[in-house]
Design a protein around this nucleic acid. Structure first.
Lengths: 399, 399
DNA sequence: TTGTCGGCCTAAGGCCGACAA
DNA sequence: TTGTCGGCCTTAGGCCGACAA
């Protein structure tokens, strides 16, 4: 739990048994976005096959409602021990994703909950970086890259201003540890920071277009790191030539069902920029949300969203309904079972369904010493059904 | 069964519900290679999940022996009705593949066998085309494409030799119906055919390298068609960021098992250049092989292979063993259960295991009126077990 | 017959400050 | 502060026949 970036081991695997290079966890996190929070290896998590299926659907631009058979023996959530987390980046597109090895377990004890909670709280603050959305000028072959002033001053090594014009060579490494060289110069009238020589090689090599983002940061050795984020939400339906989308959906469910039936480990890939929501939730986060928040119609809440330029901001909303997202296949599932409306009319693109662990209720702030640290079943009967009922199946036993 | 290219419907789908453009079946076939023979829609086939699994493994450069659970209820072969065949090409790589909708059936009648046999025989001879492996000069930015003399004379529109030098504009369409323009000129000392202007755009657009192949053909309207074949056998493990390879293998098997249990349709993708062998076999082809060929150790046979430049040639070999490829998961499977040796020492790269329908026995040539057109079980007990036993499950009933 | 090279010309790449949003 | 443009120079692209495999 003390390894970098939420306990995730960082590795790139070039195919089976291929050479492994380490991926910088801070750079991975920066590329993944400020809302992504991977659970720590060795802790307990709650896995939602429904959300996993959604990610596949999103990756394929396909409807979830494919010809997928029902798996009546597969519950809508699985309590799992997270054995392993490795960070990856697609060698072609630099798309970041994480591989997690999960093992279903039938129960957890107080200690597991404490460890999960501790891991959540021990998250390092994210490393500082700067992120710029590329303009038409940045990506044109005609010129170089215009570096925002503050970004250059904060992230790049200082220039020697006795030179005329001040300039230096920058060396930056990407997620695959590939080296990129840039000429950094401070010139023009008015003066500004520019990357010239080497920049267009980077743009064409990564196939960047206006609207995509580039980000720079420095690691603990002060070395420059370089990541990208693509704007184009167009799902790369590359895999379609190998496997039908039906088979993929079935594969997800069958793998989880098989693992659940045998309590055997299974592997999932989480792609933060492809998926609308995380589907492997730290146990403590899940538990706090379900047992601390009393959900009711009309309830007010806040929720974090990512802004352009990789910032975050909260939006206010109201719970307008509580119902199953898929009443046929996933009855009584907590996966995005809250229907919501948003305060701001510009919030049209925001999702109209969320899960309880994604929101912060405004009426009932979270207390430092929540009731769930009592042993056994923390709540008595008589509470609202939606905050308790679906929790059946997550059995906490005394240590 | 009279539609072009073995009854396959030709379509490109750009994602779910996207615009559909037709794929030229002759061009698809030329890109797929001379050995590929798709079964006709509406006929019966035998589907081998084991072979399907091999294709996924090959696409991922992964071992088949992943953490895939056993599916004891899934037989090693499924008799299916082939509802639908559509031809596709990956929009990124031009990789060709076919999508087939299969429905497991429990039995077939004489008529089904006859229809399958008829479809096999009604295959049109493949359209003529020329295929050239690109040289370093062809792909360098320094020059154009050197067209083999015969190819230019056979496939391109004739030049006007009164011009000095003789030249023309060529317009060719690729699998996606994209148009490529080339200047075709006959010049130099000695004289030769060249493609100049437009060629390098094509090379960079398709990301071609020396060793890849390009092929030209003309359709029935005398329009020029243009396809590519990549040399690089490096599997594009693109899909790895979406689905773990375990889930893919499980998905294949679970989809087939579910369909088999319910006699419901399912969809498979067949990628001729990724897969070592076809895994959807026309019923008649399977039946002839299994019931006409008496396999024994030491038996001599011939087998077709694809040469460079898209030709075919036969190699001679000897059966050296008969055994299960995977005795644990696929017991008594006919999938590549023949161990073979090859006459030519240069045959080192050829497979050491084949399936019975892939070979032509030298000792027992196929007769025009084989015994399997008799109704009911065509052979009596007492025949070698390997040519009969595994056929259980394919039940032919009288019409 | 066709792959590669040197010569030569041209179009695209790429560095610059001007200017304005 | 920074996005886009015109000016101007450099480099890589690309067309040619020579030559040899």
């Amino acid at each position: 739990m003390k390894s970098p970036a939420n306990g995730a081991a960082a590795a790139v695997t070039n195919g089976e048994g291929g050479e492994k290079k380490s991926i910088n966890p801070e750079l991975w996190q920066a590329c993944a976005g400020p809302l992504v929070n991977l659970p720590a290896a060795g802790t307990h998590v709650v896995y939602f096959p429904q959300g996993h299926s959604e990610q596949v659907a999103a990756s394929l631009k396909k409807d979830v409602n494919a010809q997928v058979p029902n798996y009546p023996n597969l519950p809508s959530k699985l309590l799992c021990l997270l054995h392993n987390v490795t960070l990856h980046a697609d060698p072609e597109t630099d798309e970041v994703y994480a591989q997690m090895t999960l093992q279903p377990v039938s129960s957890f004890d107080k200690d597991a909950l404490l460890r999960s909670d501790l891991a959540l709280k021990s998250n390092k603050p994210p490393t500082e970086f700067f992120c710029k959305i590329l303009t038409a000028s940045d990506t044109s072959t005609h010129g170089g890259f215009s570096v925002p002033r503050r970004a250059a001053e904060k992230t790049f090594p200082p220039l020697d201003f006795s030179m005329q014009p001040p300039a230096q060579e920058l060396v930056a490494r990407d997620l695959h540890d590939n080296v990129w060289n840039f000429r950094h110069i401070y010139r023009g009238q008015p003066k500004r920071h520019l990357l010239t020589t080497g920049w267009s090689l980077f743009v064409s090599g990564k196939r960047l277009f206006a609207g995509d983002s580039v980000l720079f940061m420095r690691d603990e050795k002060q070395q420059l790191l370089l990541g990208i984020r693509r704007a184009s939400r167009q799902p790369t339906n590359l895999s379609s030539s190998v496997l039908s989308s039906d088979s993929m959906h079935i594969g997800i469910l069958a793998a989880a069902a098989h693992a659940a039936a045998n309590n055997s480990p299974f592997t999932v890939f989480y792609n933060p920029r492809a998926s609308p929501s995380e589907f492997v939730i730290p146990l403590a986060k899940y538990y706090k949300a379900v047992y601390s928040n009393q959900i009711s119609l009309g309830m007010r809440f806040r929720m974090m969203f990512e802004t352009e330029e990789s910032g975050t901001r909260r939006y206010m909303g109201t719970i307008t309904g509580i119902s199953d997202l898929d009443p046929v296949r996933w009855k009584n599932s907590q996966w995005r079972n809250l229907q919501v409306g948003w305060d701001e009319s510009t919030a049209g693109e925001r999702r109209n369904r969320v899960s309880i662990w994604e929101i912060e209720p405004v009426t009932a702030p979270f207390f430092i010493c929540p009731p769930f640290f009592r042993s056994k079943r923390p709540r008595q009967p008589g509470m609202p059904a939606y905050s308790r009922g679906p929790c059946l199946g997550l059995v906490m036993i005394s240590a």
